[in-house]
Every structure is written in C-alpha cells, then in structure tokens.
Design a protein around this nucleic acid. Structure first.
Lengths: 189, 189, 189, 189
DNA sequence: TATGAATGAGGTTTCATTCAT
DNA sequence: CATGAATGAAACCTCATTCAT
C-alpha cells in the first residue's frame, strides 16, 4: 500500500498552522506553514484539500485538544459548582499552557472564514458540559437564561482570565480564583 | 495626507471597509473596498498610506464612533452602578444598531494585524470610564482586581448580550437586563 | 479616465498568443505569452479574464482576420464557381501568409478547449458564403448534401493546399489550381 | 521498458489515455489517465517513460488499430477505385465505431506535441496504400499530384464523412457514398 | 513490480501598490 | 486630486515525476 499518509506529518502541519495562525492570522501563507512543518509546499495539499479546509480542520483539531484537557476527568457526579469549576480551571490551564492554540482558535473564530458547520462540530465534544448546565438551569442553580448565553459568558471570562494569568504569571492563582468567582456570580441568581 | 480634500470620500472608504471587513475579515481586498465606496482603486491610497494603515484607522474610527454613543451623556455624577449600566447599555445599543461595525472591530481585534499602539489609542476615549472604575475599586464597590480585568469582563458580557439580542430581538429587553445583572454580579464582591 | 485600455497592448497579446499557440498549442503558458507581448504577467488578465477566455477570443480574432481577407471584395454577383474560387484562393492566401495564425486556429480547434459557442460565433462572418452555397445546392450546381458537409470539404482541401504550398513554394500556383479543382470537383455532381 | 510484465495494464493505460485525450486533449493529467486505467499514478511511468512518450505511443497505437481495420482484407488485386473505396470505407467504419480514438488522433495530431518521427512512423502501416496510389498516378487514373497531397485530401474528406455520419446516423449510408464520390472526384482528373 | 505519498518547479491568478493620464 | 491600467511579487494550487514501502 505504498507509503501511508503519515499522522506525524499531518500533525506537524497542524502544529505549524497553529503557530502561523497565532502569529499572522488567516493571512499566514500555505507556503510558510509547509516550511514550518518541514514538508514541501505540495505536501500540505495531500493532507488538506485547500487552505480553507486546513483552517476548518485546524479549528476542530484545537477544539478537540481542548476537550481532551477538560473532559477526561470531568467529575460528572460532583455538584454543579465543582463541575463548572473543573471546566473553567481546565480551560484556563489549557489556554495558559497553549498560547498559540488559544490565539489560533480566537483568530479563526473571528476571521470570518470559519464555516457554521465547523463551529457546530467544534461544540460536540463539550456536550456533557452543556447538558450539565441545562440541568443546573432547570434546578434553579444557574440563571434562567439560554445556556448558550451562560456558556458564552463563562468562556469569555475564562479567556480574560487566561490573558491576565499570562500578563502576570505571579498572580496566576489569584486571577484564576478571581476569574472563576466572577464567572460563577455572573451566571447564578 | 494631513487634510485630504474630501472628508466624504474618506468616510465612504471607512464605511465600505467596515462592511467589507465585517463580511470577509482582513482578507477583504482593497479593490473591493474601493468599489464599495464608489471610488477608484488608487484613490484609497491617497487617503490611507496602505492596507495596514487603513485597518488601524478603521479600528480607531469605529472605537470613536462607539465612544460617541457612550460618552456624550455619561452621568458622571450618578452612583457607580448607574454609571456602569449607562456604559453597558449604550455599548449594547451601539452594537445592536451597528452589526457591521461591531463585527469589524471583532475581526480586526482578533486578526493579528492590529498594532499595540492602535489598541492603546482605541482606549483613550473611554478614559472617564476606567477612572470611574478605579474609584469604584478603591471605594470597595467593585472587586479588588485590575480594572483592565474588570473592564474586559464587562466588555465580553456586553458582546455576548449583543449577540443574543440579535439572535432573539423579541427578548431584547430581557437579555439586556440579564446581561447587565450578570456583569454587575461578576465584578462586585 | 486614467490610462485607457490600450488596443495595441491587447493586440500584442493576441499576436503573442498566436505564435505561442502555434508553437506549443494550449500548453503555452500565460507567462510566456505575456513575456512575448512585452507586458507584465498580470496585464494579460486585465485584457482577458482567464486563459480559457483568452483562447476563445484568440480564435475569434483569427477567424475575423481571415474573414477580413476573404470577405471585403467578395464578388457577390459573380457565378457560383467564381465566388467559390474567390473564397478558396483568399483562404489559401491568408493561410500561406499567416502560418502562425493558421496553426493556432488548427491547434485551438482540435484542442478540446474551444467552446461550442465560440465555434458558432466564429462562423458568423462567413454567412454570405454559406448562403451562396445553399443557393448553389438548390440550383443544382453543387452536390445535394448538407452545406456544412460541402463547406467542410472545401476547408479541408484548402488546408491541405496551404500545407503543400508551404512545403513547395515554387509550385505554389500549381498547387493552388490543383487544390481548387479538386475541391470543385469534389462538391459538384 | 522492453517487455513490461503486464500487457493488460499497458493496454488499460492506452485505452484510458484515448478517452482522456479525446475529452480534454493534451491537458489531460497523467493522474486522471492512471485513475481511469485503474492503476496507481506511478505505474503509468513504468510503462511510459514520461507524458510525452505516452502521447507518441498512444498515437502510434491508435494508428496501428486503424491499420488493422483497413489492411487485413485489403484487396490488392482489385482495380484502383475499388481499392481506394475499401480504404475509404474502412477508415470511415473505424472512425465511426471509435469516436474516442478518432478524436484522440485529431487532438494529438494538432496539439503541437507530436514528434515528426512519430508522424512518420504512423504512416508505415499504410505503405501499401501509398504505393497503390503512386501506381495509380503513374497510370493516369489519379491526378498528377504529390500522393501525399492526394492522400491528405482523402483523409480529410473521410474525416468529414465520419463527422456527418455521427451527426446524422440515419443518413449514414448516404453520407458514406457522398463522401467517397466526393473524394474520388476530387483526386481523379 | 505496484503503490501512492512526497516533491518542488511551475502554472494560473490575485492583489497591494504605483504611476501615466 | 482622481482614475484605473500596469506592474510583479507572491499567493494558492496542480501535476509530472520520484522514491520509500
């Protein structure tokens, strides 16, 4: 079966794309991404049909990575607050440890080049979280609002928290607590 | 460069750029912007040195527009909560009435093409707000956190609010109240 | 109105394309055509939307050129044989004087890249000829066959004649007479 | 190169190439030909040194196929007219039954990519025909002209005949007679 | 030998910018 | 100053060919 498609090469391309997009946004050239990944320009196109598709797959890859940080030891039995704090703090942890990934997601998300379908697919791995929030809304623990609204608020406050942890790493712990408290207060009655 | 002959033309270019960037992000071509503005391709470059500069000036222009919505009847004598609510609700009002402008700001802000200097300049018209927040922190009304952190949270919750008002215009009033309450609770002890 | 599109430049591009296509067929690169025409690579695309369109327009341009050789002093009052001989001999004259043009037409025509619409349009300037042939068929001077069939035969014999005139220029006159006699006998009962 | 392992594969490639060239001319990609033949991209190059060589061999292969239709029961003892009619009608028969092959020959022949050597080689299997014509010229049955000229005329009229038989299959017989009569009249005094 | 991923030169086209009009 | 044709670097992508498997 000749040389099989190499997962390492595909990964190298995604990593290269992550950094390129983090730095230059969607203006990053396919040539620069290939160079960074250490493959020929043409090779990029055996792994990704075209630049647009590369961006969609990159977004999904990063979301999956994030999900893998958050979901594995998600405490599905704990109380709502602990579960949310788990999500929040793991989100922040990933964001801090993964500046490029976080930036790339933000750049792609706001670029105007992301397909609706991609955005929707990117939410799938977090299904358990939104289900939990739905329950929490019904039980009166969370504000009576669309969960997308509540989720969005948490996400935004987490993003802000990440930024401040990065700006002042010494105060990391304080910002993370501040951040979660703000988020929790924001979405509870 | 200093005082171009036609403020109308400059404005038409900024309006065109707003819509083009809202739709296609920084990949919008200068030609498409000029066409939209009803001027020749080359004319764009007599009003803006190059594409990068156009983007910086567009960002500042939009921030100024936003400031003009928020600041004129800012109730500098009212209590902190009222002042903040003024800012929040006017921000939301502008955002809802100015989808393209809001999107363009978001796209530029996350594009990786915005200069730090531009970002800083964009905050100047809102000086009174941050001063107020600083006082509020000192007087214990707001959380003891960097005001940039608090401001960022408000901004993000306001953005989220705008999105939901746009998605469900019928529930506009409810979302605006929900939004402000969430923001207020998030940043107060 | 700035610099107007230059007919000279457009013509230079068509001439360059004629020679490039005559030499290398549709594999001729747009870059090589632009270089030959003495313009920048990008300029080609301000005159022709893309390579395909260039080829269609080139074909029509060459057909027009041919028509201008044949049609101006077309003896519409002469008898059928004289009229046909006029067409035949002028066709041959143009072909001999215009090797590149003739080759380019042949290459394009057999390339599989020519649109049906283009082929149809290319026949318009020769309307008077096909009308004459139709009359001649009805009056019994020509074979009772589709005129397209008859026309095609004349064309092919003329092409063959051109080739032999080119191979043996000394026998030009003889070949031209031979060619027309063959054609005339072929299509008359 | 000399004796490839699988004549079936080589043949599949030639058949695939015939159809690909008939449809897209010399712009047909080697990948598309390989796919059509049901072999891997690289395999094409174990059977044909490169794309150019593939085209030359394809042309010769098709000419051989044509020769095999015409030559086997060539009536070498019949009179000139019958012999020529045999050639003409078998040529037409092959062309009608082999649209792709006929088109491929035409595309290659006019592509500008065919080597002179290839064109010459392609005429070899028809040697008997040109010898017969030479005799016929000498005996005064055919026009006193270069036999290449006469042959070319027959070929062109046969091509035209094929086209019209394809366009109007109902009139096949009529067109074939019309065609041969035209050809015969064209080349006899 | 057959496969198809890998390569990178080169193809077409876009586009920011310049400059003749 | 306004125009838009002209420019050519550079973008994306294709594709003939090579080569590891």
């Amino acid at each position: 079966m000749a040389r099989p498609l190499s997962p390492e090469k595909r990964n190298a391309l995604l990593v290269a794309a992550t950094h390129a997009v983090a730095e230059q946004g969607v203006l990053a050239s396919t040539a620069s991404i290939a160079r960074r990944a250490g493959v020929a320009e043409g090779t990029l196109f055996t792994y990704f049909e075209n630049k647009d598709v590369l961006f969609q797959e990159l977004y999904l890859h990063l979301k999956d990575e994030l999900a893998e940080t958050i979901m594995p030891d998600y405490p599905s039995e704990a109380d709502f607050r602990l579960r949310l704090e788990h999500v929040f703090q793991h989100y922040v942890r990933w964001g801090v440890a993964n500046t490029a990934g976080r930036l790339a997601i933000a750049r792609l998300s706001a670029s105007g080049q992301l397909w609706d379908e991609t955005r929707t697919k990117g939410m799938e791995p977090f299904l358990a979280v939104s289900q939990m929030m739905e329950e929490a809304v019904q039980s009166g623990v969370l504000l009576d609002a669309p969960i997308a609204f509540l989720y969005s608020i948490i996400e935004r406050i987490a993003d802000t928290t990440i930024e401040f942890v990065e700006r002042q790493p010494d105060n990391a712990e304080r910002h993370r607590q501040l951040g979660f408290h703000a988020a929790w207060r924001a979405i509870t009655p």
